[in-house]
Each structure stands twice: as structure tokens, then as C-alpha cells.
Design a protein around this nucleic acid. Structure first.
Length: 230
DNA sequence: CCAGACGTTGTT
DNA sequence: GTCTGG
DNA sequence: CCAGACGTTGTT
DNA sequence: GTCTGG
């Protein structure tokens, strides 16, 4: 997992969809090619007020006790199957769950050893949705604060299986609140999404270059290679 | 007991 | 902070 | 994300 | 130009 995520809606739309107020900070520009180590808006409960807020956070969770930040290079995803056994996620699972808004994500299908075909995956409805996530706050040596997050993954459903063996968990809109608010972590929500409610289509290799970030990245193409869908 | 690790995927 | 391995 | 590297051999 | 490492 898990390709790169795409967020093609404007932040105003996403914010209103998820019931959080929109603040036009620089980090809220629409993204079409979201990558680990980049800063993204997440939805969380404010640690003091316990109200929902949209907050900038870097993809790749660094636990508060980390001596240095490089553990964040390997925590962009968290496996939901055994999430409650991992020290690195334990406190965040209990106290700092979050939502990562998106309206699609990318995944790469392996064609040969070196050759891969990127796909966009979205809901039939083309509605926005949320990945369940965990976040934590880390203080670097200068004392400056860095908020970071991980996205929960699960096994591939029937739609994803031809593309990849893992996929991000997608929450039903009606479950978003439970993920944020439940006293105990609602692990039963961490399951593959209904495959009949999802679509996938091939897109240009340009998505593989992180510098490309424009709306044409998610336009369908004719696959250059024979894929498992052919 | 304490030292050392703590994570995931494979285009993250 | 919390767990594992020695 | 982007700075920085970008090589070879491995029984010769 | 493309890949890797942090």
C-alpha cells in the first residue's frame, strides 16, 4: 500500500461535507498528488475543546516519544489487522483518532517486475469520503511542534484485488463520527469497503512524478500495457 | 531488569 | 510510552 | 516532498 | 532524466 492519495475537490467543499469550518491557510490548496511527508488537512477532535477541527498534519506518524523523526518514514500506513498490538500506535489509537478527507486515491498495478500501471480509485457516487487515521504530536529538538498522521489499511476487496493486495480503509459517512468519538477504538469499522460501490480506472504515468499536481492526473487513459482487467 | 526497538510497502 | 528479547 | 546521487565487483 | 533517502 498505498499509492498516493488524491484530493481533487476544493477544501471549501470538503470542509462543508465533513462539517468543519474552512480556513484558507496556504496548506489547504487542492492536491491531486498527495504523498508521504507532505502536509495535509486532517479532521480531528481538538485536544482541548474536543470540537472537530481541520488541522495541518504531516503524513507519517512520529510518536511523541521518538528521539528522531525518521520513524515517520515507515508509519504512513498502519495495518488495521494488528493495530492494537503496536507500541508505536497504542496511545494514538486510544486518544488521537482522526479522519483524512479524500475523494479518490491512487494505486499501482504491477505489470512486470519494473512496469506498473497507475489507477485512480473512487466511489461510484463520486462523493468525498474519509480514511480513518491516527495522529500524534512530536516536539523536535528546537521545541517546535509537529503533528503527524497514519492511514489505516486493510486487505483488498474484489475491486482492488487485481490491482494490489492492500487498500486503505474507507469509512462509511455514517461511521465517521464513531471513529472520532468512541471511547474505545471501534476496530470493527476497519474492514474493506463494499467493492460494488467503488470504481477504478487507469491514469497516466505522470502521477508517478511527485512534482505533477494538476487535475489531468485523474483523467482516464487507455492503458499502455495489458492489465489484469483486460 | 534493562537495552533496544517500536513501521509499512514495495511508485507508501 | 510500551513491549520484547536476552 | 525534494536534495542529492547517478559506479563496479561479487570465483576473472 | 530518474531514483533514493530522509
Amino acid at each position: 500500500m498505498c499509492g498516493r492519495y488524491v484530493r481533487s475537490s476544493t477544501d471549501e467543499l470538503l470542509a462543508s461535507y465533513f462539517g468543519v469550518s474552512y480556513t484558507p491557510y496556504p496548506w489547504t490548496a487542492p492536491s491531486f498528488n498527495i504523498t508521504p511527508q507532505s502536509t495535509q488537512p486532517i479532521i480531528r477532535l481538538n485536544p482541548r475543546t474536543h470540537k472537530r477541527e481541520l488541522a495541518p498534519s504531516r503524513w507519517g506518524l512520529i510518536p511523541s516519544w521518538a528521539k528522531d523523526s525518521k520513524i515517520g518514514l515507515k508509519t504512513f500506513n498502519a495495518r488495521s489487522e494488528d493495530i492494537d498490538t503496536k507500541p508505536v500506535f497504542r496511545q494514538s489509537l486510544k486518544e488521537r483518532r482522526c479522519l483524512i478527507p479524500a475523494d479518490a486515491f491512487y494505486e499501482w498495478q504491477k505489470i512486470t517486475t519494473k512496469d506498473r500501471q497507475p489507477f485512480v480509485i473512487a466511489l461510484n457516487s463520486r462523493q468525498p469520503f474519509a480514511f480513518p487515521g491516527l495522529w500524534d504530536r512530536w516536539h523536535d529538538q528546537d521545541g517546535s511542534i509537529l503533528d503527524t498522521f497514519s492511514i489505516l489499511t486493510t486487505s483488498a476487496n474484489a475491486l482492488m484485488a487485481p490491482i494490489h493486495d492492500r487498500m486503505p480503509v474507507i469509512l462509511s459517512p455514517t461511521d465517521n463520527d464513531a471513529w472520532l468519538q468512541s471511547k474505545e477504538p471501534p476496530l470493527q469499522l476497519l474492514r474493506p469497503f463494499d467493492a460494488t460501490q467503488m470504481l477504478a480506472w487507469p491514469v497516466s504515468d505522470r502521477v508517478g512524478n511527485v512534482r505533477n499536481n494538476d487535475p489531468t492526473l485523474i483523467e482516464p487513459i487507455t492503458p499502455r500495457k495489458r492489465t489484469l482487467f483486460d
